[in-house]
Amino acid sequence: MYKVFVNDKPLFLTNEIVKETDFQLFLLDSVDIDKIIIKYFQNKIQKAFLYHPNEKEILKKIKEKIPVQKAGGGLVYNAKGEILFILRNGKWDLPKGGIEKNEEIEQTAIREVEEETGVTGLEITKKLQKTYHVFKRNGKYKLKITHWFEMKTDFDGTAVGQIEEGIEEVAWLNKLQVKAAMENSYENIKLLIEDSAIL
């Protein structure tokens, strides 16, 4: 099962039909994906399932219906064990961004962290899960698939937010501060933090 966030609400891609009552179920093959996404953005849907019997085909099917943007990002630790966060649009987020032509996704993740925060000396320590969310750009909906990497750095300079990306603040947060930041973050970031067993 995949969890895609639309307007910070879950859209599950599944090959199982579960007996619940608080959601809507749609068949992936016949659904008009744009109509569902619009309903999410209008707050008419809080949670839905898109069903397809073959789990291996689910992601391929959704990619046929909605353009995909690939992105890379970092969950970065410094020498003190603090995690690098950015504040953008009034919410705590992790640095990430879109892949460029002829770039490996690991290069994307490192480049985006450096560009968005000014932090250098990054080393990837492991690959984390991917997150999925739908966003709107130039009147079109797109599915952003972000490949996340755990990184470490000995950087001890001043981190500076990329102004043209709307980054208001860059901060190294300890566990307690991360917990507080999660009260004002995105669902896919919360998922990543939970999965990384940080808290």
Rank of each mutant, 00 (worst) to 15 (best):
F5D: 05
V4M: 02
E183D: 15
I58N: 11
K35F: 11
N54L: 10
K9F: 08
F85D: 00
I198L: 15
K91I: 12
K175Q: 14
F26Y: 13
A197I: 11
E114Y: 09
L122I: 11
G139P: 04
G139Q: 08
M151V: 12
K56P: 03
I124M: 08
N138G: 10
H147N: 14
Q162S: 14
N102P: 03
N89I: 08
F149N: 00
E16G: 08
E20T: 14
Y40T: 01
I163R: 15
F135N: 07
N174R: 10
L13R: 07
G161A: 08
K19I: 15
G74D: 03
L192F: 01
G139Y: 01
K61H: 08
L27W: 06
Q69I: 13
G74V: 05
F155R: 07
E168F: 10
A171W: 00
F23V: 15
K179A: 15
L176Q: 15
D29E: 05
E100N: 10
E150L: 10
A71L: 02
Q42P: 02
N15Q: 09
E164Q: 15
K175S: 14
Y186T: 07
E82I: 11
G157E: 09
G72L: 04
I58G: 09
A48P: 08
N43V: 01
K47N: 11
F85I: 05
